[in-house]
Structure formats: structure tokens, C-alpha cells
Simulated scan of single mutants.
Amino acid sequence: MKVTIKCWAGVATWRWVANDDNCGICRMPFDGCCPECKLPGDDCPLVWGQCSHCFHIHCIMKWLNSNQVHRLKLR
């Protein structure tokens, strides 16, 4: 069975309200999602740091849990 779409109308779009266009870690646009996720939206939310930069939550969590951050704390 083949279905042909004759007409469609968009009813809404969503966009994160962020002070940047891209994640400061993965450099992917906020309209998309981080490399860990398949779909943008609530499963890949944004977080803002005290520095006012914006990140995908998965990117900043991965960075905070990385060995590099732990080594910086030891100095």
C-alpha cells in the first residue's frame, strides 16, 4: 500500500531559548541534540552554568565526570 501526502500544515516549532546557538562542548546546535541522543527535545535538555554558557546536559555531565576535570581539582 502506498500513501501519498497531498497537503500538510505545520502547527508549531520549538526552539531552546539559549544565549548561544551551539553547545560549548560538542559544538552541536541546540536545535539538534548532543552526540549521545538520537532526538532533540526534553530527553536532551539544556543547562546553564554560573558562567552563563549553555550546554547539553549529557555533554556537561560527561565532561564533569571525565578524568581531566578530576586532575584539575588535584592541582
Rank of each mutant, 00 (worst) to 15 (best):
L39Q: 08
F55P: 02
I60A: 01
T13P: 00
D31I: 13
I57E: 05
L74I: 06
A18H: 06
C7F: 15
K38S: 07
H56M: 01
P35M: 10
R15N: 08
C59A: 10
W16K: 09
T13Y: 07
D43C: 12
Q68I: 13
R71Y: 09
S66D: 11
M28E: 15
F30R: 08
S52R: 14
T4G: 02
M28P: 00
W16C: 02
D31P: 00
G24M: 09
G49W: 04
C59K: 06
C34Q: 02
K2Q: 14
Q68E: 15
C33R: 02
W48H: 08
W63G: 01
S66L: 01
W14P: 01
A18S: 15
F55S: 00
W8K: 11
G32H: 10
P40K: 05
K2L: 13
W63S: 05
R15P: 01
Q50W: 08
P35F: 10
A9T: 10
V3P: 00
F55I: 01
C7D: 13
F55Y: 15
L74C: 06
P45H: 11
G41P: 02
V11N: 14
A9W: 04
G49E: 11
L46P: 05
L39F: 14
L46G: 02
E36H: 11
P35D: 02
R71P: 00
E36G: 05
G41F: 04
D43M: 09
P40L: 04
A12K: 07
M1G: 14
W63N: 05
W63A: 11
G41S: 06
K73F: 14
L64P: 04
L74E: 14
D43S: 15
L72H: 12
V17I: 09
I60S: 00
S52K: 14
W48A: 05
I60K: 03
G10N: 08
L64W: 01
R75P: 00
N65T: 06
A12W: 04
Q68C: 04
A12I: 05
I60H: 01
K2R: 07
G24F: 04
V3W: 00
D20V: 04
R15I: 06
W63M: 10
V47T: 07
S66H: 10
K2D: 15
C54N: 07
K38I: 15
H53E: 10
N67S: 13
N19G: 08
E36W: 04
G24H: 05
I5W: 02
C23A: 08
P35K: 12
R75V: 10
K73D: 11
F30V: 07
S66P: 03
L72Y: 07
M28K: 12
W14L: 14
W16Q: 04
L46E: 00
G41V: 12
V11E: 15
C34V: 01
D21A: 07
L46D: 02
I5Y: 03
C33D: 03
T13V: 14
E36L: 04
D21P: 00
C51I: 00
D42A: 11
M28R: 12
C44L: 05
G32F: 07
N67H: 11
C7H: 12
L39I: 15
N19P: 07
N67V: 04
S66A: 09
R15M: 12
V3L: 14
I5K: 07
S66C: 09
H56Y: 11
C44T: 05
S52G: 01
P29L: 11
N19V: 13
S52A: 07
R75K: 13
V47N: 01
V3M: 06
L72W: 09
